[in-house]
Amino acid sequence: MARILAFVLNDRARTDAVPGNLLLLDYLREVVGLTGTKTGCDGGECGACTVLIDDKPTLSCLTLAASVEGRRVDTVESLGTDGQLSAVQRGFHEKLGAQCGYCTPGFIMASAGLLRKNPNPSEAEIIAALGSNICRCTGYVKIIEAVQYAAALRAQGIAP
C-alpha cells in the first residue's frame, strides 16, 4: 500500500507516494536519486547508510521511508554551502579520512550529527559516536583526526 509522505529532505519540502514497506535508504537512492548514501550490508551491520533525521544519526536501511513523515532528513548531499565543503567534509578530505570513500558518507553524517550536538568532542566521544560505522580502508586513525580537525575548523569559524 502506498502512502503519502511529506517531509523535509536536505532543506527542501518534498511530497511523494511511497510503498509502506520501502526503506528510507532505497527511497533516497532509487526514488529520489540521491546516491551519496550508500548500501554496505544487508541491514544494520555497517553504518554506510547513516543519515540525519532531525539531526540524529540514523541507519536509513533500518528506517521505513514512511516513518519520516513530518521530519527533517539530511543526507551527505546537504552538506557544504556555496560550493564549499563543510568542516566535516574538509576534515575527511584533507586528513585522508576517506580512501575508497564508500564508507565516507556514513562516517561524515555520523560525525556531522556528533558535532551539531557536541561541537568540541573528546577523542573518546568521537570514538563512541562512530562505533557503529565500519571502514575497511583506513584503520580509523585518520578518521579520528578528520573529526578533530573538523571541530577545530568549526570552532575557528573557518568552515560551517
Binding site: 551519496g36 551527505v76 565543503l85 575527511f92 570513500g101 561524515i108
Partner: peptide, 9 residues
C-alpha cells in the same frame, strides 16, 4: 578525487 567522495558525488 577526495572532493567527490566527501560530497557524495
Amino acid at each position: 578525487d577526495g572532493p567527490e567522495k566527501v560530497s557524495g558525488r
